[in-house]
Nucleic acid binder design. Structure first.
Lengths: 158, 158
DNA sequence: GGTGAAAGAAATAGGTT
DNA sequence: AACCTATTTCTTTCACC
């Protein structure tokens, strides 16, 4: 599944992760190439799914979304029906930014972004009313000390 | 600190979160306006820091970064010196995608993206050799069931 | 806030090594 | 097969209404 990328592909990805609004000319300059090959490589990486999409990152605090919780979920039900329903609830809730199924005694972790603690409680009540959950621990973030979408390409090399 | 945004600003942000490569014409069409006001609003929101940057989101699995850990950190040291050093280590490590200081008995949570469990161990050994840490629990993600950078603008409204 | 023209960038075609 | 040059088309930017 891992796409084979050469050094130039990685440099292009690094530039696009840093700033997706760079012009082809500027990217070409940075990777010591010219527009056409860079354009072809980007197109290929979009088609192959290495580049998922390009997005504007917003400041949650500036938008008034001042609370962030990590939610540790334990369940006693592990059948497909329950899991499907749980997944559907997570997908339908825009305040759930991330959800992972875990190995070990905690079953799921969620990252939830809301306006305040009250809004989190509204989410929590909705969640437990829609699916049976054995145990929930909410970790409240006091400070986001690092937040990046930039994947470490250097560590990805084969 | 929360910027005041009207309905049109929010619609523009929604479009840009979904696809930052949309043309001004297309965004203007979607928000039932024309290029100039949309362009001015985007510029204002960039200047005011509501829009942080635009980035290409990549597929971590396709790049061979197949392991994701959430790391719960407890420390016994809470002085500024320790905290500064810890922060510096997190910032310098590209595999740390997120780090939050928490309320409650767990002090920090990290999200760490690496190639495999061995690469995580390398990171872990480096971390504990650079700063004193009382207790670490690593939660291994088996499956990313949701992952979005799209903030819920509807829930952000005053 | 709208219009439109000038500048700039993206997308593609055709030729080159 | 990958790159370079040139052309067309689309987009951004900005002065003016």
């Amino acid at each position: 599944m891992a796409a084979r990328l050469d050094e130039m592909d990685r440099k292009i990805l690094a530039a696009l992760q840093e700033d997706a609004s760079l012009s082809l000319d500027e990217i070409a300059r940075r990777v010591s190439s010219s527009k056409t090959p860079v354009w072809n490589r980007i197109r290929r990486m979009k088609e192959s799914g290495v580049i998922l999409r390009t997005t504007a990152l917003l400041d949650a605090e500036a938008l008034g979304l001042e609370a962030c919780f990590f939610v540790l979920v334990r369940t006693s039900e592990h059948d497909a029906g329950w899991q499907g329903k749980f997944l559907q609830v997570l997908q339908s809730r825009p305040e759930v930014l991330e959800a992972h199924r875990l190995a070990g005694d905690i079953d799921y972790i969620l990252k939830v972004r809301v306006k305040n603690a009250r809004a989190y409680d509204t989410f929590y009540q909705a969640l437990i009313s829609e699916v049976r959950i054995y145990n929930v621990t909410a970790l409240l973030s006091m400070e986001e000390i690092k937040s990046t979408t930039i994947l470490p390409l250097a560590l990805a090399a084969d």
